[in-house]
Amino acid sequence: MDAWLTLLRTPTIGPATLRTAVARHGSAAAALEALRRGDSPRELDAEARRWLDAPDPARVEADLEWLDQANHHLLGWDDPDYPSLLREVPGAPAALFVDGDPTLLWMPQVAIVGSRSASEHGLALCRRFARALAAAGFTITSGMADGIDGAAHLAALEADARTIAVLGTGADLVYPRKHRALAARIAANGALVSEFPPGTAAKPEHFPRRNRIISGLALGTLVVEAGLRSGSLITARCASEQGRDVFAIPGSINNPLARGCHQLIRDGARLTESAEEIIVELSALAAGLGDRLRERIESAPGAADAKGDSGPAVAAAGARDPDYLRLLQALGHDESTLDELAERTGLAVSALSSMLLVLELEGDVSLGRGGKYTRIPRA
């Protein structure tokens, strides 16, 4: 962990250099030693070399203290739990700091973005779409800005659904400050995500970088309202360049906040009038993401031992391994917390978290208010 923190705080070294070094040498520790020897994908300047030779121990220690807190995580490029969809994105971050549940980054997500100065009509549309998409099983991802972003997060939370906020600051800071309460709710019921180390303040250049992560985590991006100079158009452009679907809600020709959406539609975004259109378009992709998650769980250390002689750890209903059957029996028909399920099944909390995520993707389990799980009866 110290190696990753040292690398991420190295000045003038960008994500591409770090990703290449870690991929070439197999780990952050090996990459750090290679960079110190001068074995680098590109020539390092004097400032970077000084830091690599003598990093500030106080900064690294502060990062470690943040990571020692409950539900704080670092997912590096060499971590198999680094989100699958984001790994495909050119220019993906070398690592992510997460305050909350990191498994949510593998969930099928729809990004909802738009104007910071949205109209009341736009905010109402945002809430309606967010609730419908959440009810269909999508995690709502946005940037926790004023306007559409905040409304999307809040609508998901009020629907007892998950939401992910990607930040332009360190994961320990809240910007804008008015969203402190919202950030706390997101961390407790979803995840705050940042590529910037703790303590990193908001800077204008951070937000376009944040936008590529918002679109990169999601199967598709919905733009609700946007002026022609809106930052949400950057997110839409990133989504398009990443090969992801872009959806835009049209508006009145007299509304300046509709012009950005109209421009997106002219450029090839899907004109969208209902959440059902997005759900239909992304359902197959969501199922494919579920397959990736199952493969990840089956390849995890210890997965082979957990299978025993009963076949794959995750299979179609009626052919599950004993651990999944035990979990389904423990769920019953009443709401249960993760700790209660761990006590009933004897399974580790870390294993249960991944198993419950798979069961949600398969439509067998729902997560409700207060982090309580309920079994969904099959027809």
Rank of each mutant, 00 (worst) to 15 (best):
2 D>H: 14
13 I>D: 02
22 V>H: 06
23 A>T: 15
24 R>I: 01
28 A>Q: 03
28 A>H: 03
30 A>G: 03
32 L>C: 03
32 L>E: 05
34 A>S: 12
34 A>N: 05
35 L>G: 04
36 R>G: 03
47 E>R: 15
48 A>E: 11
48 A>R: 10
50 R>V: 06
55 P>R: 04
59 R>N: 01
60 V>T: 13
60 V>L: 13
72 H>M: 01
74 L>Q: 07
75 L>M: 09
79 D>K: 06
81 D>T: 11
91 G>F: 03
91 G>T: 06
92 A>C: 11
97 F>C: 04
100 G>Y: 11
100 G>C: 11
105 L>Y: 02
106 W>D: 06
106 W>G: 01
109 Q>E: 07
115 S>T: 09
117 S>K: 10
124 A>Q: 14
131 R>V: 14
135 A>V: 02
138 F>A: 06
142 S>H: 13
143 G>H: 12
144 M>S: 15
146 D>F: 13
148 I>H: 10
149 D>F: 15
157 L>Y: 07
157 L>N: 08
165 A>T: 02
167 L>A: 03
172 D>M: 02
187 A>N: 06
193 V>R: 01
199 G>N: 09
200 T>N: 09
202 A>P: 12
203 K>F: 14
205 E>C: 10
213 I>Y: 08
217 L>C: 05
218 A>D: 00
218 A>I: 01
222 L>W: 01
223 V>W: 04
228 L>R: 14
234 I>M: 04
241 E>L: 15
242 Q>L: 08
245 D>P: 00
246 V>E: 13
247 F>I: 09
256 P>S: 10
269 A>F: 13
270 R>K: 14
271 L>M: 15
275 A>M: 06
276 E>S: 13
277 E>H: 08
278 I>L: 04
281 E>D: 13
282 L>V: 03
282 L>N: 03
283 S>Q: 12
283 S>P: 00
289 L>R: 15
291 D>H: 07
302 G>I: 03
303 A>W: 02
307 K>R: 15
310 S>W: 14
311 G>P: 10
312 P>F: 07
313 A>M: 10
316 A>L: 11
318 G>N: 13
322 P>T: 02
326 R>G: 12
326 R>P: 00
326 R>W: 01
327 L>E: 05
332 G>L: 08
339 D>T: 14
345 T>N: 06
352 L>Q: 04
355 M>L: 08
355 M>Q: 07
356 L>Q: 02
365 V>R: 01
365 V>Y: 02
367 L>S: 12
374 T>S: 15
377 P>N: 08
378 R>P: 00
